[in-house]
Design a protein around this nucleic acid. Structure first.
Length: 884
RNA sequence: GGGCGAUUGGCGCAGUUGGUUAGCGCGCUUCGUUCACACCGAAGAGGUCACAGGUUCGAGUCCUGUAUCGCCCA
């Protein structure tokens, strides 16, 4: 039954209208009565709320939504939640500036705290003016602030048409997430997978926190090679080249490659350091690079990660001089007590930044004659925290770690096996996982010396001596979670015992944000909170994400699920590519080439933007192409117009359309449906293998051919020339039914890609939402098509094109009648053109005879109208223009 | 330095296990049109598939090497 076909169709306003309707009807609400086999669960990436969404988000989230809508139409109950990542540094900074506060975990919680500011117009509040507050208060303010961001984000996602169940949302800092992260940590601890160690680690002096391997970024950093002499007992000089001469007081060995002939005679001997006269051994290690610098290196504690490796493997002593603030220690180290360089150290080095210390030491070296030549500038690679702008130092501290295979071959092999078990889309993305896991050089450091985040849920006893007993941490019971050890006392203690002998201290650190977000499947799935839900959705079906966080988010999630449940967290990982600007550069804020997504959706329409996104394959970088969006918009409008047309033949609103295949009797109509059946098969197969691009392409191509050829061919027959609505011929009925059947199928095929236009058309004549309609089945189409050959429609289309060409070349209107014509048709196309001859004549406005002959060998060009050639034709008078 | 991906008409992309004259869209040229669609329709021009070798009856497709670009890891 056709209810309503608008006089003038439009895409405008569809986004708001259908978002509202879908919400009202609960179209995407998750039905938790379904069993695991009936559910398709998606572990959505939670966007960082303190950042802003950009075009890349729109791009990749569309890929996921296409899958969600497809799976839903396949009859699966889709579990598609949305999360907000508000845990971590970006939010911490925003809260500081917005409210004018600063987190001090040593402070107690203040009930009903009101911050000094409510937004500071983007101006930073000076650290001195920030009001220090407890971590719990700080987290509360974060939750207050991010609520606004979440509203904006949700608005954008709704406009884009993400078929998320908005009743299922989470925040990575909410109580559930905190409890989940802490529970998982306590389980790791109980099983021995989490441990603490006092060890040298990468340290960001700006943020004052330890940094994990996964957060590193190697960047070029300018420096100078200094050629510095160490001294053998006989006075011979051994030159090394270093970019960090300020670490000479921390030197513990000189190291060369065991095969290096130049230094072989030195192994086993000692040298003394310049200026400080500390005696150190010369030893061999394969990590020394003979062709780098002098080929012999100074090992200090610690200049870089190779130093750490040497120190560990060669059991070298520890002589650290760099402190957590990035300055050289102010106290004179004991090994320099009797050093000739003691005065130099105390006067010019102690307490200085590494930069000033370097200047002082270089001057002294030059004066002492131990600097050969002048420093030579160089670009070296240095490790940076991805959010920092100073090279990382290596300092020794007590930190918590979770085992991830970085120091344990058995676990590494298990995790590599998990990688093989996971279906990556595209498959080659697996190597990124394998390279990363294979290249790990330590366990996962999860302690962060930050304030805003999920607390490490532990306390430590304070011994009668006043020392903290880190070896016997006090853990909360799982029922108490989430806890904040800096503002809550452990069971059996009271708050006044904090920090006093016989009492306790809380661990002041928080966990790495990945330690929480690696648990998103558990957080959304109700792990240990809602067992009924958990067993219906976990392990999940799909993790969509970007290629840049395979080493972090994807890997960490695999680690957690493996350790906790002994399973892979999901079956499939769909990896989206980057968005590049038209100059093939990665779009980024700093380059100023970012387009605001909301503006984009408003300007082009959501279906258009989705089309652009869906036209790019997974794992492939895509250009930001406005042209591509215009094509999408054109498709969406065409869907509206063609649908309106196809539904108009029966008489428009109020007419009844039966999707009764037995009424499709004409060969051309059945040929069209045969072609459509093949399209359904191809699109289905493509979507099953996460190839949404191909599904879109085959569907779109068919749709345009449908409009340009089929619709034109059957137009007259569908109108039912001459017959009134009461007596409709079988031929007319066949065309009308075929049009409706095809429309019904094509709308469903296109629904995942352009959900708004398809839903609009669906509303004109079908019941419910197209997004809950079953995915098309090729079998009934095949049954209707019978033995019809899809190529017959192609052949008829080519014949029509040949007739159009005559008019086009004569530069006359397409409505010009052809009084008579003769076509030479290749033998393969002859049956198709013959059966459809009446439709061809009508569409081509052939008023007289249209005779067909078999084309001779070599006649015609297959690339032009399928090889059909008009051998003779006579054009009539162009139809007179209607008088206006 | 190692790894992964890319290189096809001016631009953006397809090209499935090697099989005839390499497709699509945008743009371009010419023409048409108000009875689905000007956010339109029709017809047309435009490519030695980055380069060099090799395998094969046959290579855009497979192998080797080179170049350029992007990303990841040292």
């Amino acid at each position: 039954m056709v209810r309503e076909v608008p006089e003038k169709v439009s895409l405008d306003g569809l986004e708001e209208r259908y978002d509202e309707r879908w919400t009202q009807d609960g179209t995407f609400a998750f039905d938790r009565s379904k069993t695991r086999e009936q559910v398709f669960s998606i572990d959505t990436p939670p966007p960082t709320v303190s950042g802003s969404l950009h075009v890349g988000h729109v791009f990749s989230y569309t890929h996921t939504d296409v899958v969600a809508r497809y799976k839903r139409m396949r009859g699966l109950e889709v579990f598609y939640p949305m999360g907000w990542d508000d845990n971590g540094l970006p939010t911490e900074r925003r809260v500081q500036n917005y409210f004018g506060v600063r987190c001090d975990p040593s402070l107690p919680y203040t009930e009903g705290f009101e911050p000094p500011h409510q937004g500071t117009d983007g101006k930073n509040v000076k650290p001195g003016d920030q009001v220090p507050i407890s971590r719990r208060n700080f987290i509360e303010l974060c939750e207050r602030l991010t609520a606004d961001d979440e509203r904006l984000f949700e608005e954008l996602w709704r406009r884009l048409g993400l078929s998320v169940d908005w009743a299922q949302t989470y925040q990575t800092i909410d109580a559930t997430s905190r409890a989940t992260a802490q529970r998982a940590f306590l389980r790791n601890l109980a099983r021995g997978e989490a441990y603490q160690a006092e060890a040298p680690g990468l340290w960001d002096v700006t943020f004052q926190t330890a940094v994990a391997q996964a957060e590193l970024e190697a960047r070029d950093y300018p420096g100078f090679f200094h050629k510095v002499a160490f001294h053998r007992p006989d006075g011979e000089k051994v030159y090394i080249e270093t970019t960090r001469p300020e670490l000479i007081p921390a030197a513990v060995a000189l190291i060369a490659h065991p095969d290096d002939e130049r230094y072989r005679h030195l192994f086993g001997t000692t040298v003394t350091s310049p200026l400080f006269g500390i005696e150190i051994p010369v030893v061999a290690h394969t990590a020394a690079e003979p062709d780098k610098g002098a080929g012999i290196a100074m090992c200090c504690t610690f200049g870089d990660l190779t130093d750490v490796q040497w120190w560990r493997e060669l059991q070298l002593p520890t002589r650290s001089v760099v402190q957590r603030d990035g300055r050289i220690t102010a106290e004179t180290p004991e090994w320099l007590a009797d050093s000739p360089g003691r005065a130099l150290f105390e006067e010019s080095v102690a307490g200085k930044t590494t930069f000033s210390a370097r200047t002082a030491i270089v001057d002294a070296l030059r004066e002492a004659g131990d600097l050969d030549g002048e420093p030579v500038s160089t670009q070296r690679k240095a490790n940076f925290y991805e959010k920092g702008d100073k090279p990382l130092e290596i300092v020794t501290s007590r930190q918590w770690y979770i085992r991830n295979g970085g120091r344990d071959a058995t676990l590494r092999d298990e995790l590599l096996a998990r990688g093989k078990e996971l279906d990556f889309h595209p498959d080659f993305m697996r190597v990124r996982y394998e390279n990363w896991v294979g290249g790990l050089n330590g366990d996962w450091l999860i302690s962060r010396q930050r304030f805003f985040g999920v607390a490490i849920p532990l306390w430590y006893p304070v011994l009668p001596s006043g020392e903290v007993d880190h070896d016997n941490p006090i853990a909360p019971s799982e029922a108490e979670l989430p806890v904040d050890p800096t503002s809550q006392a452990p069971a059996g203690y009271t708050e006044d015992q904090r920090g006093v002998p016989g009492g306790f201290v809380g661990d002041a650190d928080v966990m790495d944000t990945w330690a929480t977000s690696s648990l998103t499947p558990q957080i959304v799935g109700g792990w240990e909170r809602d067992a009924d839900l958990f067993e219906r959705v976990f392990p999940m079906d799909l993790r969509p994400q970007g290629q840049d966080i395979i080493r972090t988010w994807l890997f960490a999630t695999v680690v957690r699920a493996h350790l906790e449940s002994g399973v892979l967290p999901w079956k499939n990982a769909a990896i989206s590519g980057w968005i590049l600007d038209p100059d093939r550069k990665k779009m980024s804020k700093s380059k100023g080439n970012v387009v605001t997504p909301m503006d984009l959706l408003v300007e082009h329409g959501s279906d258009a933007v989705r089309y652009w996104a869906a036209a790019a394959r997974l794992g492939t970088d895509a250009a930001f192409e406005v042209g591509q969006m215009k094509i999408g918009r054109r498709l969406a409008i065409k869907v509206l117009n063609a649908s309106k047309f196809a539904l108009s033949f029966g008489g428009g609103a109020g007419s009844v359309i039966e999707l009764d295949g037995t009424k499709v009797t004409q060969p051309l109509d059945r040929a069209m449906l045969a072609g459509l059946a093949a399209v359904v098969e191809q699109a289905t197969q493509a979507l099953e293998t996460y190839d949404h691009t191909r599904a879109l392409e085959v569907t779109e191509t068919f749709f345009w051919t449908f409009c340009d050829d089929y619709l034109e061919l059957v137009k007259d027959r569908a109108y039912g020339a001459g017959a009134d609505s009461a007596e409709v011929s079988a031929e007319t009925e066949s065309a009308r039914t075929a049009l409706a059947v095809a429309l019904d199928v094509m709308l469903r095929l296109l629904a995942p890609f352009i959900p708004f236009a398809t839903e609009e058309v669906w509303s004109w004549w079908r019941e419910g939402s197209v997004h809950r309609a079953p995915w098309p089945d090729p079998l009934p189409l095949r049954a209707v098509a019978g033995d019809a050959y899809a190529g017959d429609l192609t052949a008829a289309g080519h014949a029509l094109a040949a007739l159009r060409k005559v008019k086009s070349e004569a530069k006359v209107s397409m409505r010009t009648p052809i009084l008579g014509a003769e076509l030479a048709v290749p033998a393969t196309a002859l049956p198709g053109v013959t059966t459809a001859i009446e439709d061809v004549k009508a569409a081509g406005r052939v008023t007289g005879e249209l005779t067909l002959a078999e084309a001779a060998e070599g006649q015609g060009d297959a690339a032009v109208q399928g090889g059909i050639v008009v051998t003779s034709s006579e054009l009539g008078e162009p139809e007179a223009r209607k008088k206006g």
